[in-house]
């Protein structure tokens, strides 16, 4: 193996950095978009044909662009937002754009599963739409959010590895530059094992919390 443990540790940090920052921004975007997609639907509390008709296709389009193409396609936008188009921070912009809409669909599904009767009961209490969202919709869907968040985090890890291809840093970058390009099988094995371990840990944490939240639901 040609690489030192320093390089591996730094790559690991970069991966975790990209994942966590994208998760925060992607998570916020996902929840806001997801909630909007639900409450502006026909017959829902803030029914709004125009907002829904605008957002729905945008989410679909972003969802259907393969990440590797999105990565390249939005380079100008990335440069505009973070000032550069290469490096770890630059990778975060496409990661957020990739994961936000994806998460928003999961959020949307979770919210649509909230019992309509509960929504009706809350409306009957004279709740404002914001109260309904914050006090009822989001908490009722929280258990399934946690599972969605786990899924999203894991696909983010996959995406960060791809971001390595354009010099984004992280474990994927190491695997490509040292392993693939220099035929260093050991490095590939080590990075892959690391990624697998991280994914396993996240899945376990997610399952644990989901179970805890749903214990009485």
């Amino acid at each position: 193996m040609e690489i030192s443990s320093d390089i591996l540790v730094r790559a690991l940090q970069e991966t975790l950095y990209m994942v966590s920052v994208s998760l925060v921004f992607g998570g916020i975007i996902g929840i806001v978009l997801g909630v909007t997609l639900v409450v502006t639907r026909k017959g829902h509390i803030l029914e709004n044909r125009y907002v829904y008709a605008l957002l729905n296709p945008i989410v679909n389009v972003l969802r259907s662009i393969p990440f590797i193409i999105l990565l390249v396609a939005i380079i100008p936008l990335t440069r505009l937002i973070v000032g550069t188009s290469i490096g770890t921070t630059a990778a975060i912009v496409p990661l957020v754009l990739h994961i936000g809409p994806y998460f928003s669909r999961l959020v949307e599904n979770s919210l649509l599963e909230v019992d309509e009767g509960v929504i009706e009961a809350t409306r009957a209490m004279g709740a404002t739409p914001v109260q309904l969202i914050i006090k009822v919709l989001l908490p009722e869907a929280f258990g399934s959010f946690v599972l969605s968040l786990t899924t999203v985090t894991i696909s983010l890890i996959g995406a960060t590895a791809m971001a390595g291809a354009i010099g984004g840093g992280g474990l994927g970058d190491v695997a490509i530059t040292y392993g693939y390009q220099r035929f260093d099988t050991a490095t590939i094995v080590v990075t892959v094992v690391l990624l697998v371990v991280i994914v396993q840990i996240i899945q376990s944490i997610g399952n644990h919390f989901e179970r805890k939240i749903r214990r009485f639901n």
Partner: peptide, 11 residues
């Protein structure tokens, strides 16, 4: 208001 299926919050 009360309902046939109670409509209580699970959370």
């Amino acid at each position: 208001m009360i309902f046939q299926h109670f409509n209580l919050l699970q959370s």
